[in-house]
Simulated assay, not measured.
Amino acid sequence: MSGVQNIKVKNDEDGLRIDRWFKERFPQLSFGQLQKLLRKGQVRVDGGRVKGDRRLCAGETVRVPPMNDPGGAPKKPQQRSRAEAREALAAMTLYEDSDVLVLNKPFGLAVQGGAKTTNHVDALLQDAGSEETRARLVHRLDKDTGGLLVTAKTRKAAQWLTEAFRKRQVEKEYWALVKGVPQPLEGRIDAALEKSGPKGAEKARHSEDGQRAISDYQVIDTAAMKASFVALRPITGRTHQLRAHMALIGTPIVGDGKYGGAEAKVEGLPQKMHLFCRRLVIPRPGRRPLVLEAPLHGHMKETWKLFDFDDNAQPGWPENL
């Protein structure tokens, strides 16, 4: 984008703060860059200068300055064509309707970008659609975790999906391969966690002063007592919760060097994270819940074949856990 754009505010953007409006339409523009554009008066609404907390009204026109001019945001590196981005998303799309686009995320693909990460799901979503049609993230998965990732195709859908995840109304089930065999074979881990470490390399650790974190688990199958197929149900949603909890009880997730170190290795298996978001049940306003289930892929599928684990297992969660 090299010239000035004048963009009308859509009906479903009515009441949205302009800083949030820019974040949704131009995610490559940092907060600091936007504030600079606002201070210089390069961003205007119906011809007038505005501040970042200005709420927009449907039908107003936002002046968007050239993003590759000095003082603006740099062009996004290695931008794909729309066809290339759509093809990449189609390869991982599991389900789609008028509200949601559900992906079966590959292992190793980041959900959002960083200083050194330009290839990520959010960039694919941006490249695949226009500002009017781009799907938006409503929750996260770690880069090295595979499985279900839900995105919203409309702002209204983003609102109820975000609320459902925030209020813990979404039922989640993960599958993992862990080192050893948890004892007992089924149970609940209730251990508070807090973040520690430098920015960008934070790690969750057990602390009585941390935030309460609860995970249910059950062993589905074992491989000669050296590893176990475990189903996990996070009740809370702390950062790295499942990884930290499984390491805490002495059975780290295979391939998770950050939390398991050398103990997270199993001879003969790739040293990749064996954690997968298998199932989600999401409530929908005025409709039946959306039930999603993703098939295993990548190295976890190969590991399941190696150990002859059932990749169609249906864990039953006791109500009294």
Score class of each variant (00 low, 15 high):
P295H: 11
A262I: 09
A176L: 04
G108Q: 11
H240G: 03
I214N: 08
K105F: 09
A294P: 07
V64I: 11
D216L: 14
Q126K: 09
V50P: 05
F309V: 09
V254C: 14
K301V: 06
V170S: 07
P289G: 08
G71Y: 01
S215W: 02
T222L: 12
V230D: 02
T162L: 00
A264W: 05
A73C: 06
R288T: 05
A110C: 06
K10G: 12
H245M: 03
R44E: 09
G72H: 00
E24P: 06
L290Y: 08
A85G: 06
V64M: 00
M67N: 13
P315R: 03
V9S: 04
K51V: 12
V219T: 12
G129V: 03
P65E: 08
R205N: 05
G147M: 03
Q241T: 15
E186Q: 15
T239I: 07
A110N: 07
G41Q: 15
H206M: 00
A262L: 11
A313H: 14
Q33A: 15
R279N: 10
Q112S: 01
S2R: 14
P252Q: 00
R168Y: 10
G59R: 11
Q35V: 04
R155I: 14
K75Q: 13
G147F: 06
V291Y: 12
M273G: 06
A128N: 05
G15A: 03
R166H: 15
P295R: 14
L185P: 09
A201D: 08
E84T: 02
L275M: 02
V45D: 01
H240L: 14
R82K: 08
K195I: 10
K10Y: 09
K143A: 02
A115K: 10
G48I: 15
L161T: 10
R49I: 15
G250L: 01
P252A: 12
T118I: 10
P315N: 04
W317D: 11
K10D: 14
A58F: 13
M300P: 01
L89K: 07
V291E: 14
D256L: 14
R86P: 06
T133K: 05
I235P: 04
P252H: 05
A213R: 09
K143P: 03
F31M: 06
L149S: 13
E319N: 12
F26W: 10
